[in-house]
Structures are given as C-alpha cells and as structure tokens.
C-alpha cells in the first residue's frame, strides 16, 4: 500500500492516512499482545518455591501460606508419604486436562506420591486463599502438608519430575527417613522412596 502510494504521488495521499494509522495500531497491538504472552508464560510449568518461614514466624505481618489441611477441609485428600500435588482446575480449561493426566501418570509410578484435582470454580475459597489466578495451578505439598511450591500452567514431564525431585530434596534435609508416616503403609513407602529418589536423580 505504502509503495503504491509513493509511486502514485510524492505524498501518501493515495492511501487513507486513517487506514495507515489503523494498520500500525493493529501491528502494535499484536506486538504488545505477544510480549504480554511471553512475559506471562516465561515461567510456565516451572516450580516456583515458596519461601519457608517456619523459623522466622516472629514479627511478620504476612501470614504463612495455607497448608494441605486447608485443602482437606474442602476435599478429601489422601496425602502422599513423600509429596502431594493439588491441582486447581477450572471448568473451561484444556491444559488442565493435560496437566492432570500427567500428574496422574507420575503418581501411578510411585505410591509415595499423591495427586488430587480440585475444581476451582466449585471451591472458590481455596482459589482465593492460595491466590490462584490462572488454571491449572499445581500446589506441591511436602510430607508435613506444608506448601513447598507452585506450578502455573501445564508442566512438561521433565518439569513435573524436577518439581517432585525438588520436594524430595527439601524433605531429605528436614526428614531423612519418613518411612514412619502413619498415613501410608510404612515399609513400602520407605523402599519406594529411595528407589524413586535414585530414579529422579539419574534423570537430572
């Protein structure tokens, strides 16, 4: 359009300046949208660890993040001996299905892990308290039911495995042996734990 105008007349008189302005605005809008997309999803699927304030509880106005027990007041959760993943989903959310299928698959390989999917639309109190703005959001809890971190968006298999490994490392520091967890069959949880840690360690 611009070249045609330049050939026809020395000025841009042949092309309506309003159309030129609108075309530029469309290009700018799509550029801005692309940048916003990149910015919003630059950490998609990554585990964002929650800074633990277990020992520094004094004098902080910011309350500790809710625990797995808070989730339990809304839905039935069978906690995993090593880690529990709670995914907040929504009714109209295609990546939630993909993410839930991945967690289900990973949890099936290891009895020390547990996964539960919660419909955020039916449990709006949970979405508020955990500050869930987009779905899926996967909340990762450790053995104690403490929130270790969160994952926004559907993780890849590698990202999900790394997130679970992170949880295992955190627990490894505080609890070297969690085979005495009363919620699970103690003996098997202990052995599964070690093999799983080795497996994840090898993949890293």
């Amino acid at each position: 359009m611009r070249r045609h105008a330049a050939v026809g007349r020395p000025s841009l008189g042949a092309v309506d300046p309003d159309v030129l302005f609108r075309a530029s605005a469309v290009v700018a809008l799509l550029g801005l949208t692309s940048f916003a997309w990149w910015f919003a999803t630059r950490r998609r699927g990554e585990l964002r660890p929650v800074r633990t304030r277990r020992s520094t509880s004094a004098g902080r106005r910011e309350p500790a993040p809710p625990t797995l027990d808070r989730v339990r007041t809304a839905v039935a959760v069978t906690a995993g001996a090593r880690a529990t993943v709670v995914q907040i989903s929504a009714e109209y959310c295609s990546p939630c299905r993909r993410s839930a299928a991945l967690w289900t698959d990973l949890v099936a390989t290891d009895p020390a892990l547990a996964f539960v999917e919660v419909d955020g639309g039916q449990h709006l109190d949970l979405t508020r308290e955990f500050g869930v703005l987009s779905t899926p959001t996967s909340l990762l809890f450790d053995t104690d039911g403490t929130l270790v971190g969160r994952i926004g968006g559907a993780p890849t298999r590698v990202q999900a495995t790394q997130a679970l490994a992170h949880s295992a490392n955190t627990i490894g520091l505080t609890r070297p042996n969690n085979s005495t967890d009363p919620n699970n069959s103690a003996g098997s949880a202990g052995t599964d734990n070690s093999t799983t840690t080795d497996r994840i360690g090898a993949e890293r």
């Binding site: 929504a90 959310c93 955020g120």
Partner: peptide
C-alpha cells in the same frame, strides 16, 4: 480490537483467554 487480542492469542499460542478469565470472574 479486544476480540482480536483473544483470537490472536488463541491462534498463535493456543491460549483460551475467555477460559482463563472464567475463574477470575467467578
């Protein structure tokens, strides 16, 4: 223009903007 942003995000990146806003709206 508003609809274009949503349609573009869907076409280019597979994001369903309306679906994401559903939970926030709720």
């Amino acid at each position: 223009a508003v609809a274009l942003v949503a349609a573009f995000l869907n076409a280019a990146f597979g994001l369903c903007l309306g679906c994401q806003l559903y939970l926030i709206g709720r």
